[in-house]
Design a protein around this nucleic acid. Structure first.
Length: 481
RNA sequence: GGCCACGUAGCCAAGUGGUAAGGCAGGGGUCUGCAAAACCUUUAUCGCGAGUUCGAUUCUCGCCGUGGCCUCCA
């Protein structure tokens, strides 16, 4: 598999440090507020990467993947926000993490293997800082802060492709109190009144932003590991500083390949809290199906920007329904010819191998869906083709089985009223059996050519978002968004 | 101002030095009691200008536009 590596700016083959295994580290959120769809998009991308690498459907694959993503649960923003809300920053972080993890389940994210939090890794972090100081790449100020010394190694800026001089020109020229050089950044910050703090050799304080990821990635994946991911907005300074610190501490290369995903926009505008142009994951999950969100993410290339609009989500929802429709069961005659999914798998794999080309991979699946629908009309045995579609969509994490049935979405009272209206028994019945009974009532009406009644039943159910479709095998129902 | 991406049909979105996947929406058909779904069919010369080339949407340069980043005690 080839991915565009930010460090070399070239397509590079994923070449595991340890044969057959791949370690992936992705920067997670700073949980000072609820997660938004940008966070969801990022995680969906890496979730699919992990699923694909683990998948054994491609002869060369089936890697043993270790996926690590962190929570930076001590941070300036978190402390500020907690002060505004007049609550404890660590509790605030914990609450936001819990909510985000519940949402991840709804989004169909395979739980990462490790989800370390800064507050649980203070010793890991302080020992990494000690090592960096020992190597001469960091210094302790009289105040008790620790700064990384950017100028010692000559490769600072290699990831974001910037020169120290250029960066320096962009600074405000203020040389922080004890900083040796404007670009030096904090590894450890001495506690200020009211802030959470932990003991360290230099002062009671907390880790700076950046060091946590270097320390945690190396703890869980080794000094050198395979893939480091995150949003493009993290390339500088976060990842640049991460790579500097990590390599300063060990003298070894850090991540072998750096992968960055693009940002999500909402209705053509940057998502930002200040303008209120932001969609939370909770809101997105309420408005759209998780599979539709995932299809939306995968239908554009991971590195490009992705513009979330009503229209795009409508298209994604229809796309899911289309894929789902192709998987509907079909009873072929015993002597039917099996439909051959032909080159679908090859196309799918080639697309994925080439810099994670999910849009093209999806195109191969939509083509297969069409072939299946055609084969259905022509009486082919669809088993093989449908199994293929099922397998490949599940590699992308698209849950298509019975996805439209969400009992909570059904207005049970209105449904019961509808049943009474048409003289159908609904006492103590399950939602599904009431619907089935209504369908039976309608089928009788249709047999009797009472199309006025049958249409009334169909229309009434439609107002409850229950869609009826008549097919040669009988009437099917599904939930409509 | 600096660095980096991107600019393809009504919308979303791939891709290629030799006249452009897929999805949504729209038009026209088939099927259906009518629908729905499905199937068939139809809709682009690839931001603008110049250059390289037998030939560029695909390479180079300029311009315009959009987006990201340009640090922590904002």
């Amino acid at each position: 598999m080839r991915l565009l590596d930010t460090l070399t700016n070239k397509l590079r083959e994923v070449d595991p440090v340890h044969e057959g295994s791949i370690g992936i580290y992705v920067c997670g959120v700073t949980p000072y507020a609820e997660a938004h769809v940008g966070h969801a998009m990022s995680l969906i991308v890496y979730d699919v990467l992990v699923r694909y690498l683990r998948w054994d459907g491609n002869s060369a694959r089936g890697y043993n993947v270790t996926f690590v993503t962190n929570y930076t649960d001590v941070d300036d923003k978190l402390i500020e926000r907690a002060a505004e809300l007049n609550c404890d920053p660590l509790e605030l972080a914990s609450e936001n993490i819990d909510r985000w993890e519940r949402e991840q389940v709804e989004l169909g994210i395979v739980p990462p293997d490790k989800r370390p939090r800064v507050t649980g890794e203070i010793e890991t972090i302080t020992s990494t800082i000690e090592e960096i100081i020992r190597q001469g790449y960091a210094y302790v100020t009289t105040n008790g802060d620790v700064y990384y010394r950017v100028q010692v190694k000559n490769d600072y800026g290699k990831l974001s492709h910037r020169e120290i001089e250029g960066l320096r020109a962009g600074t405000r020229g203020e040389l922080g109190k004890d900083k040796e050089f404007p670009l030096d950044f904090a590894l450890w910050k001495k506690q200020k009144p009211g802030e959470p703090a932990w003991p360290s050799p230099w002062s009671n304080g907390r880790p700076g932003w950046h060091i946590e990821c270097s320390a945690m990635a190396q703890r869980y994946l080794g000094d050198t590991f395979d893939i480091h991911g995150g949003g493009v907005d993290l390339i500088f300074p976060h990842h640049e500083n991460e790579i500097a610190q990590a390599e300063a501490a060990t003298g070894k290369p850090f991540a072998r390949l750096w992968m960055h995903n693009g940002m999500v926009q909402y209705e053509n505008e940057k998502m930002s809290k200040s303008t209120g142009n932001l969609v939370s994951v909770a809101e997105a999950l309420q408005r759209w199906h998780p599979a539709a969100l995932r299809l939306f993410v995968l239908s554009s290339h991971y590195r490009g920007p992705n513009n979330l609009t009503e229209e795009a989500m409508g298209a994604a929802t229809r796309g899911i329904e289309r894929l789902e429709g192709a998987l509907k069961p079909f009873k072929a005659s015993p002597d039917a010819t099996p439909l051959d999914p032909e080159g679908t798998r090859t196309r799918f794999v080639e697309a994925m191998e080439n810099d994670f080309g999910t849009p093209q991979a999806l195109a191969s699946l939509f083509d297969l869906a069409r072939a299946i629908n055609r084969g259905r009309a022509e009486g082919f045995d669809l088993g093989l083709a449908q199994a293929e579609l099922q397998e490949l969509t599940s590699v992308l994490g698209l849950r298509l089985d019975n996805i439209t049935f969400t009992e909570v979405k059904i207005d049970k009272i209105a449904l019961a009223d509808t049943a009474s209206e048409f003289g159908v028994d609904h006492s103590g019945s399950e939602v599904e059996s009431i619907i089935t009974a209504l369908i039976e009532r309608r089928t009788i009406a249709r047999t009797e050519k009472d199309f006025i009644l049958s249409d009334e039943i169909r229309d009434k159910l439609a107002t409850l978002h229950i869609l009826l479709e008549d097919t040669p095998e009988g009437t099917h129902w599904s939930m409509q968004s």
